[in-house]
Simulated assay, not measured.
Amino acid sequence: MNFVKVYTLTALFSALTFAYATRATAVTVPPIETQVKQVTQWFTGLFDNSQQVANNPSVPLITLSSCNVELTNANPVTGIENIYLEQKSINRFRLYSFSQDNSAVNLSIRAFDPNYSVTGLCNRPELEQTIDSSKVLPTSCNLELLWEPTDYIGNNSPNGCPTSSGGKVISSVTVSQNGIDSLDKIFGANDNLLFATPIEFRRVDSIPEPSFTLGIVALGVWGTSKIFLRKHKQKSTVK
């Protein structure tokens, strides 16, 4: 009888443990609108691959800066987040547009008119972070970003996107809160692989925001100290 009780309790405990584990591991997928805003936020900022270079000096050091931009001379479209991306030392300037799809975040990547200068756009005041939509080339390279609990993953294999030299580029990207891992496989016109070095960008602390915050704190301390000194002076005068 005792054996039956022990077996029953053990089975009940196992069932409860399994149910709790299942409930704990169940993750609710956020709405696509929320995903667009989240991946855009993670994609925005200052990044570099210095950690990767330290482990593998053969990889070129690349900095990446990206920021939200407004498109001028264009009809407003809701649900789209436009991000300007600038890479150095491998120079690359692109407009990344994140939008809602049925079950994923759609990413559209477009280049600019060669005569249109956008260098340093993210260093300009926020009101000046605008792009003339007529200077954005209509041809785009698209891929879908699928949500995972800690990141967004996308690729456009096997077709990729055509290049001006008659080849194609197949892109893979993983966007997380503190980094962007990208791999562009560039193929020539005869389908030979020309370049395929994965780049591991990691977030770098942005200078403007901390400086602004410290400035506010300093201003508050300065103001508080003035009030304290004024009160102290008034007390001295009364005495």
Rank of each mutant, 00 (worst) to 15 (best):
N2I: 13
F3Y: 09
F3C: 00
F3I: 08
K5I: 14
K5S: 08
V6Q: 00
Y7S: 11
Y7H: 00
T8S: 14
T8F: 09
L9Y: 06
L12I: 11
A15S: 13
A15N: 03
T17I: 05
T17S: 11
T17W: 03
T17C: 09
Y20M: 13
Y20I: 11
A21C: 00
T22N: 03
A24E: 06
V29A: 06
V29E: 05
P31A: 09
I32Q: 00
Q35L: 12
Q38E: 15
Q38H: 07
T40G: 15
W42S: 07
W42C: 08
F43V: 07
F47W: 02
F47H: 01
N49W: 08
Q52F: 04
V53Q: 02
V53R: 08
A54C: 10
A54R: 11
N56D: 14
N56Y: 00
P57L: 09
I62Q: 05
L64N: 05
S66Q: 05
S66T: 15
N68Q: 05
V69E: 07
V69M: 10
E70M: 10
E70R: 14
A74C: 08
N75Q: 14
N75G: 11
L85N: 03
Q87T: 13
K88G: 05
S89C: 00
S89P: 00
I90A: 09
S97W: 04
S97Q: 06
F98N: 04
S99A: 10
A104T: 12
V105P: 02
L107I: 09
R110N: 04
D113L: 13
D113S: 14
N115E: 06
Y116G: 06
V118G: 05
V118E: 02
T119Q: 10
L121S: 04
R124F: 02
E126M: 12
E126K: 13
E128G: 06
T130W: 04
S133L: 04
K135P: 00
C141G: 08
L146W: 07
W147N: 04
W147T: 15
W147A: 13
E148H: 12
P149Q: 08
P149G: 10
P149V: 15
T150V: 10
D151W: 01
Y152S: 00
Y152V: 10
N156R: 04
S157N: 09
P158L: 06
N159A: 13
P162N: 04
S165H: 02
S165A: 07
G166I: 02
G166N: 12
S176Q: 09
Q177F: 03
D184I: 11
I186R: 15
I186V: 15
F187Q: 06
N192R: 10
L193N: 11
F195E: 05
A196F: 01
T197E: 04
T197F: 06
F201G: 08
R202N: 01
R203S: 03
R203E: 01
V204C: 01
S206V: 11
I207R: 11
F212K: 14
G215H: 03
L219T: 13
G220C: 15
T224F: 12
S225F: 13
L229N: 11
L229C: 08
K231S: 08
K231Q: 14
H232R: 13
H232I: 02
K235N: 13
